[in-house]
Amino acid sequence: MTLGSALLALSSPLLVVGALTLAARRPPGGVLDRGPRVGLGGEVFVLRSLRTRRLGLDVLSRLPHVVRGDLSLVGPEPLPPGPADPADPRGLPAARHWRQELRPGLTGLARIRSHSGMPWDEPALLDQHYAEHHWAGMDLAILASAARMRLRGALRGCARRRRARASDTDHRLSGYRAAEEVGSVSTD
């Protein structure tokens, strides 16, 4: 909760600018996405996040849920409520019992591994693996990987804007004129 509060304080100016930018564009449905999600112990809460993926603002906008205790920084993906298992007296969704044992997270093993191309890269299996084997060191490694991925993505975006493409550069020899190309005929 302390780290979540600190991150929220640091990201607040960026979130305000993002929300104001979205509000100026007047997207249909408003600035925030809202949807029910299942949390710790099967409690359902309404997850709110900005309607943008730029700079990870959608994820950062979920930090108030971390401070309130609905989410943790690291955990399985927060899923919407599913159909209840008729055999479960508590009415918990079928095949999701292990999810009820820990808080869902802003980021998690499934999110950071989703771009790795591993053959067993199915999010549900990775979330279950995290639930069965999580510890503080794993959480720190996941947070570091998530931050590194965001930073790498931002740097790639900046590099793409600066780099000239081959089609943007004139590769013709000096003294070349377009009129010479039209009038010339090959004698081969």
Score class of each variant (00 low, 15 high):
residue 18 G to V: 01
residue 2 T to K: 10
residue 37 R to N: 01
residue 159 A to S: 13
residue 28 P to I: 07
residue 157 G to H: 05
residue 25 R to Y: 07
residue 82 G to N: 09
residue 37 R to V: 06
residue 108 G to E: 07
residue 183 G to P: 10
residue 149 M to R: 07
residue 94 A to H: 13
residue 115 H to E: 13
residue 78 P to F: 02
residue 9 A to R: 14
residue 5 S to R: 15
residue 117 G to R: 01
residue 105 G to W: 04
residue 154 A to I: 08
residue 183 G to I: 10
residue 71 L to E: 05
residue 52 T to L: 03
residue 134 H to R: 15
residue 23 A to C: 02
residue 108 G to W: 03
residue 167 S to L: 05
residue 4 G to K: 10
residue 132 E to S: 06
residue 151 L to T: 01
residue 28 P to V: 05
residue 88 D to H: 08
residue 188 D to H: 12
residue 179 A to Q: 05
residue 8 L to R: 02
residue 129 H to Q: 07
residue 150 R to Y: 05
residue 184 S to K: 11
residue 134 H to V: 02
residue 184 S to Q: 05
residue 133 H to Q: 03
residue 173 L to E: 07
residue 61 S to V: 07
residue 88 D to K: 13
residue 10 L to Y: 04
residue 92 L to A: 13
residue 138 M to R: 13
residue 152 R to H: 11
residue 5 S to W: 09
residue 20 L to R: 12
residue 128 Q to T: 13
residue 51 R to V: 10
residue 42 G to W: 09
residue 46 V to S: 13
residue 153 G to P: 03
residue 72 S to P: 02
residue 178 A to H: 03
residue 5 S to Q: 15
residue 167 S to K: 09
residue 107 T to R: 07
residue 52 T to M: 02
residue 155 L to E: 03
residue 123 P to G: 09
residue 76 P to F: 00
residue 99 R to Q: 12
residue 67 V to N: 01
residue 159 A to Y: 06
residue 172 R to S: 09
residue 100 Q to H: 13
residue 68 R to H: 08
residue 72 S to Y: 04
residue 94 A to Q: 11
residue 140 L to A: 15
residue 105 G to H: 09
residue 6 A to H: 07
residue 128 Q to V: 10
residue 139 D to E: 04
residue 143 L to V: 00
residue 152 R to A: 13
residue 166 A to Q: 06
residue 3 L to T: 15
residue 147 A to P: 01
residue 27 P to A: 05
residue 59 V to M: 10
residue 50 L to I: 03
residue 128 Q to W: 02
residue 80 P to D: 11
residue 46 V to Y: 04
residue 168 D to Q: 14
residue 15 L to Y: 00
residue 19 A to P: 05
residue 105 G to P: 02
residue 136 A to S: 15
residue 54 R to D: 05
residue 38 V to G: 11
residue 63 L to T: 02
residue 56 G to R: 01
residue 79 L to M: 11
residue 87 A to M: 09
residue 55 L to V: 12
residue 156 R to S: 14
residue 55 L to F: 08
residue 10 L to T: 02
